[in-house]
Nucleic acid binder design. Structure first.
Lengths: 347, 347
DNA sequence: GTGAAAGCGCTAACAG
DNA sequence: CTGTTAGCGCTTTCAC
């Protein structure tokens, strides 16, 4: 194994020579481009097969495409994101494109590093999932390479957008809880101060949707938003605050803006020696595998991550084909999945 | 945003012109190569800064390196793998290398596609986590690019290896359960028939370690291995079989070879109206975030994923620097994390 | 220490 | 429909 010199890669020239044709013809066959007779095709394909030739993506990228799509996920640990990724990879399965993921990014700096790295590697298209970067940076990226932003609202002429209707999703939860007789329904939001993100990020939409829905149901006086973060720790902290209140102002139901925060709530409830849904109904958002897990059985909102991924790819391929086409925004409807963590209010 | 033509990228030629030096000099500065005076360095760096130049990785790769490391994870959903990834990215943070992930791969075919794609993109080094491919394929990959295999035993002169001592990990669990007074301890393994994988994959080692440890504790007659798979469904199926037995042969403790399978066990136990650890002690392997989650509190074995990732990077960079250096195998010691899912046997 | 020039593997523009 | 050739942006000889 050791002594063999790092074997020279088979190149397009080798294939051309082997097939007794020009490199152009080989290139055309590789790209399924117009202008190669059927016999030429078979000759070339045979040579490729026999030599085990594989085109070098970097070299291709120097003139044409690299056939590489980059996907940036904010947090690989959040079980919602793999759903989107599945939608992306499934849609790309039959194409010549290959997907690569940027490593988990939290924060603008890490995002910038990853997006720049993707551009530097000549990737043909980017799918950015729930990016926190400024609009300006997103538009800079989109100016360099076709880009689809997933899970963030504010649209731009520079890139396409796929998102879930978070306002509606929040309303679904409130409606469900009201239907179960709850009135004191609290909401745990991900704290946000940046004005752009306040307008564009899903967490802000969910909080807004909650407030709107409470008003619609005549429960304005019970609006109760705890501002922590979409994390287990954030949910835990929020729950402790809620459970520490006197019974009169303690909510009978909690709507956490993300399953991961709902996990923290469930943990805190157990620690307090209380039970779900007996003492408190809990709902989340994202319909993660965690929520679906039997012993947890968390009521949640399903965003159809796979569908989001599929739409992102469709838009991306369209834009790669025609960079001038007007930008598009796709909004998908969420769906409530009721489970055992929510029950009729005792009151 | 629309009308601006896809702006031409700043190239090394632009930088050279701007700094009034040769492209060779710029290239040297970029690579921190020998033979550039301090004043040259500053001149060039200033020009790079002023023009916002970023080298094109594909073009670099045509002659030198792409400064890209590829990581292949078998399943992005398994909460253990992000740990390894963290170790990898942390170690690479201060270097010029950028990490990209291959999308989740299950099966040899998908693995081959991803590894080939990484090679085609001129990646400088690969970290393959728990690959299921044949030895031959791994050595083929390692022949093309420096490679470290993580979480798989059989070593090879062609690549370096980092793994956890799975035999010892299994022994830790058995010892723990025996210490709690258990004797009828069952094990759930991931079914394996392929002879290579039987020898090299962690699941086989864990099952072996379980058998050995049972013998060591004089419990040979109680050896009880259920062969399903490392998945929630597999754990569920195994647990149903175990719980369906007459009390006399029903185990008092179950050691699942992976947390993900332990999840299935917990689910089945709950469905059967039984409780953990009252009716059954349950232990897993991997110490995932799931195991650490309060309401679950699953006893598990910690593999120090981050440490594995850090070691993988160290070995990879060493091999990139010297492709002839003898291959190395690093074995890390696992650590038992006892939690509430295991308790003293009632017997 | 610095620079000119060849060439990495491929695609695109052009001739035939 | 097929082939020849000039680059893409960089690193690497090899002169100076």
């Amino acid at each position: 194994m050791e002594p063999t010199a790092p074997q020279r890669r088979v190149t397009i020239v080798d294939v051309a020579r082997h097939a007794r044709v020009s490199v152009t013809s080989v290139s055309k066959v590789l790209r399924n481009a117009y202008g190669a007779s059927p016999e030429m095709q078979t000759k070339v394909r045979r040579a490729i097969e026999e030599l085990g030739y594989r085109p070098h993506a970097g070299a291709r990228g120097l003139r044409g495409q690299t056939y590489t799509i980059g996907v940036m996920l904010p947090d690989i640990r959040n079980p919602f994101f793999p759903e989107i990724l599945d939608g992306v990879t499934d849609s790309l399965e039959e194409t010549d494109y290959q997907v690569f993921l940027g490593p988990g990014c939290n924060g603008e700096k890490a995002e910038a590093r990853v997006t720049e790295a993707m551009i530097d590697r000549g990737m043909d298209g980017l799918v950015l999932v729930a990016p926190v970067s400024s609009r300006a940076h997103l538009e800079h990226v989109a100016g360099a390479v076709p880009t689809v932003v997933v899970g963030r609202h504010g649209s731009s002429p520079a890139y396409d957008t796929v998102a879930d209707d978070d306002t509606e999703g929040a309303a679904l939860v409130v409606r469900h809880l009201v239907g179960l007789g709850h009135r004191r329904i609290a909401h745990i939001e991900h704290h946000e101060t940046d004005p752009t993100r306040l307008a564009e990020m899903p967490n802000a939409r969910r909080a807004d949707g909650y407030r709107q829905a409470m008003r619609v149901h005549g429960l304005e006086e019970f609006i109760d938003v705890i501002s922590t973060s979409y994390s287990q720790e954030g949910g835990h902290r929020a729950a402790r605050e809620l459970l520490g209140r006197p019974t009169a102002t303690r909510p009978t139901a909690v709507f956490a803006g993300a399953d991961i925060a709902a996990m923290g709530v469930l943990d805190a409830v157990a620690e307090a020696g209380l039970s779900v849904p007996g003492d408190l109904s809990v709902a989340g958002y994202d319909n993660t595998t965690f929520a679906a897990y039997g012993p947890i059985s968390l009521t949640s909102v399903d965003q159809c991550g796979q569908e989001m991924g599929r739409n992102a790819v469709r838009l991306l391929l369209e834009r790669i084909a025609d960079r001038a086409r007007p930008s598009t925004k796709v909004i998908l409807s969420p769906r409530l999945v009721a489970r055992r963590s929510t029950a009729r209010s005792a009151e």
